[in-house]
Simulated assay, not measured.
Amino acid sequence: MKKALLRGRRLSKVFAQGQVKNKVLDRVDVDIYKKDFTIIMGSSGAGKSTLLYALSRMDTVTEGTVTYKDKELTRMKEKQMAKLRAEEFGFVFQQTHLVSSLTLFENVAVAGFLSKKGSSGEIQKRARTLLTRMGVEKAEDRLPAQVSGGEAQRAAIARAMIGNPGLLFADEPTGALNRSHSEEVLDLLTGLNQSGQSILMVTHDLRAAVRGNRILYLEDGKILDELELPAYKGAEDRHRESRVSQWLSELQW
């Protein structure tokens, strides 16, 4: 039986505007398992990104608890939480958020220094190794504005991985990319997962969703259903995409 790496219990998030209250998360219970590639899907406004940010403690909840490796994150002060995020979590967003004045190598290395895992030399070596693994080693001395969107996103994944995170959070990582660059990024994330990296990803894209082995479907701030899948074997598995598509159709996605 799989043990939960990250656990959310009774997670609620309410936004209030005057007398109007909007419940974006409604007492969600969810477990995220080690080495899984977990996908969060749902219609626009269902609470997908809000759930990801709540679980990573990038945002607070109105009610509920989040536990990571048996540590209750909702009890931690922000300074403690910032330290844990730097040491244990990696983040990839739709926009890369690379520092425009730093080269790709410097963006990755700086994140490594913040994680405080290893000496300066070890971190620089790991940064170059990751950039090579992501296929952007030839662009390591370029600024973000001097590379393509796909190259920038691959560098952002290297930055997210520099601290050897226990869990990688990805929020629509292919949302701003064209099809070919999207496939490159998805291949990298799939490869990381197949090497043992735990990933939690929000997406609205069917082609991205089929990479996961578990898909959670949100509606009106609640997990309506979930789908378990075998490990991704490659684009030639058309049955996989059809199965996910049919499941989503039944949920009226």
Rank of each mutant, 00 (worst) to 15 (best):
L192K: 07
L227G: 01
R126Y: 11
R27Y: 05
M161L: 15
G64I: 08
T190W: 10
K23Q: 14
R126C: 06
A156D: 06
R159F: 06
G18A: 06
E72N: 15
Y68F: 15
P165T: 12
K35E: 15
G121Y: 10
A16P: 00
F169W: 03
H181C: 06
T203M: 02
L227S: 04
D220Y: 13
M134N: 03
Q17D: 08
T103N: 10
G212H: 08
Q95M: 08
R9I: 09
K117Q: 06
M201H: 02
E72I: 12
A231I: 10
L114Q: 01
L51E: 05
D31R: 11
E106H: 11
E219I: 03
E151N: 01
N22L: 05
G118H: 02
A46P: 02
R238E: 11
E87T: 12
T50V: 09
M201S: 02
V24M: 04
L177A: 10
G47D: 15
K138N: 15
R159M: 05
E137W: 03
V210R: 11
A111G: 14
A111Y: 09
S101Q: 13
K116C: 02
L25M: 13
G166N: 05
R154E: 03
L248W: 05
L11S: 06
T132A: 14
E172D: 09
A235R: 15
L102N: 01
E250I: 01
L84P: 04
Q95S: 13
H204P: 04
L102E: 05
L216K: 00
V24A: 10
L251T: 10
P230M: 05
E236V: 03
E122R: 05
A209R: 00
V61I: 11
L130G: 06
G118K: 02
L143G: 01
R159Y: 04
Q194E: 12
A208R: 00
L98G: 01
E88F: 00
D141C: 03
R9F: 01
V110H: 08
A109R: 10
Q153M: 08
G196D: 05
T190D: 13
R238L: 13
L168W: 01
I157E: 01
L52G: 12
M1G: 15
G221K: 03
N22R: 07
H97L: 09
D225Q: 06
N193V: 05
L216N: 10
D187V: 00
G135L: 12
K222C: 11
S12C: 09
A170W: 03
I199M: 03
L114W: 06
A152L: 01
E72Q: 14
Y53T: 13
T103A: 11
V185N: 00
R154W: 04
G163K: 07
E184S: 09
L229F: 08
K79E: 12
S101E: 12
T203D: 06
E219T: 07
I199K: 08
G90P: 07
Y33Q: 04
T96H: 14
K79R: 15
L192Q: 05
T190M: 09
T60I: 04
P144F: 09
S242F: 04
L104E: 04
L6T: 11
S245P: 00
E78G: 02
A170K: 08
R128W: 00
E87H: 15
F15E: 05
L206E: 07
V136E: 00
R27H: 15
K125E: 13
I157W: 06
R211L: 07
A4D: 12
E122D: 13
N193L: 09
K2W: 00
